[in-house]
Write a protein that binds this DNA or RNA. Structure first.
Lengths: 273, 273
DNA sequence: GGGGATTTGTCATCCAGACGACATTACGAT
DNA sequence: ATCGTAATGTCGTCTGGATGACAAATCCCC
């Protein structure tokens, strides 16, 4: 029951399996929306807001920002905080998550350099609903809610970009929900790795990446992965070991390399069928 | 391991269990963000975009809209469609969902009167990623993407509102993901009912609602509920029967009434602990 | 260059909930 | 009224994955 829509470039579907060198996120082209596991939305949602702005806009925005350095594990804000800033990641990585009443962490998003976050509480001026923690040494620009609203008012173009990013995020989260509801753990992990490979491979790692290999350049513990896909830590460990034994992935430094992207992709297509 | 952040009004936590009369969605006040199951975000995300506009804005917007009548089960668009409109529900209800490769439907959102949807594909002009189906006889206003962008440019206030709605939706979906990842089926159903009671009780049903009773004024089949919370139809049937036997809910006409809101809420607090 | 803390790896146990297979009821169109 | 279709209700059966409980390996900080 594969609804594949392909108006033009019929063969882009075939191309997918040949695509080995990573022009990032491009392997999920525009023309097949169902095989697309949300790759587009994913990339769009992780769009580099900062660098998408015009020179002048960037200056305007950063002029009213404060810079903040965070050490790994530092909290930027917690649920219940009154802080009303909007943040842009300068470099590093911020983990956004929610705690369930039972204390379980559900990771909602990783914000990478250039990404903007914290907009949700912007208008209502309500409390923070979620937690933001530096996943590694991270620098963020803080912009007061008030300034940011003014900025958007002054720069309609930027406001449209913000809308674009937010809607992409809505879409990406829709795909995540579908994954949570439909896929088994192995498939969810595969999806996750492919997505992160797409958005994080900008800064490729030092280790020479073998041909066709994708680098998931984010340092995540098994617990993080578990919290990201709604599984237990043990299951993640086991499943990852499986994939490793089958030669689909390997561990480099402290992150994962996808040795056989096609192997993972094949999991998505048939899904939990 | 209950991380409850409560700056002031320590006892508002206690108050929650006493609250029976329904000033809807207000029972989730501003001051306890952990007990708040996203009720605020939920309501904000279902905000009536149309009626939040000024008289003049509304006229501007509707002037460039076409009205469309849909019968129950009519498709407004499908994944893969090229349509590039933004929609506002005049009356009725639109079901937005995604199909997994194996054909399973995951409902992402119900759009109620006044709500705007279809913004995700707005800027990229890409294909629809999801399906939109009328859940009942429904009237929608269609606005071409181009006109809508122009409208937002001309009315920065409205653009800010759109940003607000989108970020609330991101937040609401974050809560949904947490639910999917952490709660058991009974809790997920409880959460769902409470949320829908909050947003749908505007148009209360004919049947005299007993004191303290909440009306979930949306006609959903068990299959719909299953698709909404990522469970099987049978489990939903069984669980709902449980809740009915315990007197927590009852069926009126073709929708659910929450007889004992507190009973359902108690499920959320301890969650799947 | 230890030593406490964090992360990984592996196992045996158990159960919530998926799935298939029905019977039953309600609904809506002709 | 009547038939076909869609929606409920109720069973067993079976399994993916949670959970708890460890041992081993690693990391990182003083």
């Amino acid at each position: 029951m594969l609804h594949c829509v392909k108006n033009k470039e019929e063969d882009s579907l075939v191309a997918i399996s040949k695509f080995t060198v990573p022009p990032v996120a491009d392997f999920l082209a525009d023309d097949f929306s169902c095989v697309d596991d949300g790759g587009n939305a994913w990339s769009d949602a992780h769009a580099n807001f900062l660098s998408s702005l015009l020179q002048e806009e960037t200056e305007d925005l950063l002029r009213c920002s404060r810079s903040l350095m965070l050490k790994p594990r530092d909290h930027l804000f917690r649920a219940g905080d009154r802080s009303s800033d909007v943040y842009i990641v300068a470099n590093g990585c911020i983990r956004l998550f929610q705690l369930s009443p039972s204390g379980k962490e559900t990771i909602l998003w990783f914000s990478f350099p250039g990404e903007i976050f914290g907009m949700a509480e912007l208008l209502k001026g309500s409390h923070r609903q979620i937690y933001a923690v530096a996943n590694e040494a991270t620098q963020v620009y803080c912009i007061s809610c008030k300034d940011f609203i003014k900025f958007l008012g002054d720069h309609p173009e930027a406001a449209m970009k913000a809308i674009g990013i937010l809607s992409a995020r809505v879409r990406a989260m829709g795909y995540m929900m579908m994954g949570l509801a439909c896929d088994n753990v192995e498939t969810r992990i595969a999806r996750l790795l492919i997505r992160f490979a797409a958005v994080s491979s900008g800064n490729s790692c030092t280790e020479a990446t073998a041909a066709g290999e994708l680098c998931v350049n984010v340092r995540m513990t098994h617990q993080d992965i578990a919290n990201l896909i709604g599984a237990s830590r043990q299951t993640v460990t086991t499943t990852l070991a499986h994939l490793r034994k089958r030669g689909a992935v390997r561990i480099v430094d402290h992150h994962i390399h996808i040795v056989q992207p096609d192997h993972l992709r094949s999991l998505l297509e048939v899904a939990a069928a």
